[in-house]
């Protein structure tokens, strides 16, 4: 097998998949500080998306006492920036699903990605970050490089996976050895190519090695810790594999007390299950 280059992988993806127009339009409107009704009008163009957003606005995540039945209200309650993140999350899920149906065990991939997303969102909320959905997206997409591998070079992807299982080494180690780069790098470079925010690019590239993140070390540290926690939860629910090693500085960088971990671990189960229900209303069973 010829060794594929990183550039080859990225090019192969961007020629067949681009960021959904609705996200780009929304992002532009928000940058220009468009009024809420204009943002709502963009979302309402996609009926499926609009109805899913209403479900989220009415979910326990936002815990609003009365029913929210218009997109304009949802925009006001969720906030335009967080809303753009939710739209990004939902459209990426849809895109990946369509491109990879039948080629790869997506259920396992989504379970891990959504668990990590929910953990990142919780860590961000304990840190009192203003846009916690940004971290949900970072957790959701941290392993998107694996998807790229299974889409473009499935033989390599499978070989690496088998080898990692057999030798009990982390995937990124085997990838680095066989390809010269790992799925974190692939994912981050793809997101960069799509011109997504630099913080998201960095947190994806450095989610295994947060100490190398230059501009957004806390974002990378947060996704790293979220991944460790989500692995602990999945394993404690009968999942396979092992807990990856923690970079201890990453935890220090979050400046969170240890006392949040026990409640967070409980909340994570609930919020992960709720996220799965919101993202895949008819399909997946949580845990």
């Amino acid at each position: 097998m010829n060794k594929p280059t990183l550039q080859h992988l990225i090019r192969a993806v961007v020629t067949v998949a681009s960021l959904p127009t609705i996200y780009l339009r929304l992002d532009e409107a928000i940058r220009e500080d468009a009024p809420h009704r204009e943002v709502a009008a963009i979302i309402s163009d996609d009926v499926g998306l609009a109805s899913r957003l209403l479900r989220i606005a009415n979910s326990p995540f936002y815990g609003f006492p009365s029913k929210i039945d218009t997109i304009t209200r949802a925009v006001t309650i969720i906030g335009t920036r967080q809303l753009a993140q939710l739209v990004l999350a939902m459209s990426m899920v849809k895109m990946i699903d369509e491109k990879l149906k039948g080629k790869f065990d997506l259920e396992l991939f989504w379970k891990h990605s959504i668990t990590c997303a929910a953990a990142a969102r919780l860590l961000a909320s304990y840190r009192r970050e203003s846009n916690i959905e940004k971290y949900f997206v970072a957790g959701l997409l941290h392993d998107i490089g694996r998807v790229v591998m299974m889409m473009v070079i499935p033989d390599w992807g499978t070989r690496i996976f088998d080898e990692a299982m057999e030798s009990q080494r982390p995937l990124y180690d085997v990838e680095q050895e066989l390809l010269g780069y790992d799925h974190a790098k692939i994912g981050g470079e793809l997101l960069r190519e799509w011109r997504l925010p630099p913080a998201l690019v960095e947190s994806t590239i450095y989610h295994h090695r947060p100490r190398f993140a230059k501009e957004y070390p806390v974002d990378a540290a947060l996704v790293h810790v979220a991944e460790v926690i989500s692995n602990c939860l999945q394993i404690s629910e009968g999942g396979h594999g092992f807990v990856p090693a923690l970079y201890s500085e990453a935890w220090d960088q979050l400046e969170l007390p240890l006392s949040i971990i026990a409640p967070l671990f409980e909340q994570l189960r609930v919020q992960r299950d709720e996220s799965v229900r919101l993202i895949f209303p008819d399909r997946m069973h949580a845990a």
Partner: peptide
């Protein structure tokens, strides 16, 4: 952190 996660 790992000790706590291990316990949980």
């Amino acid at each position: 952190l790992m000790a706590e996660l291990h316990r949980l």
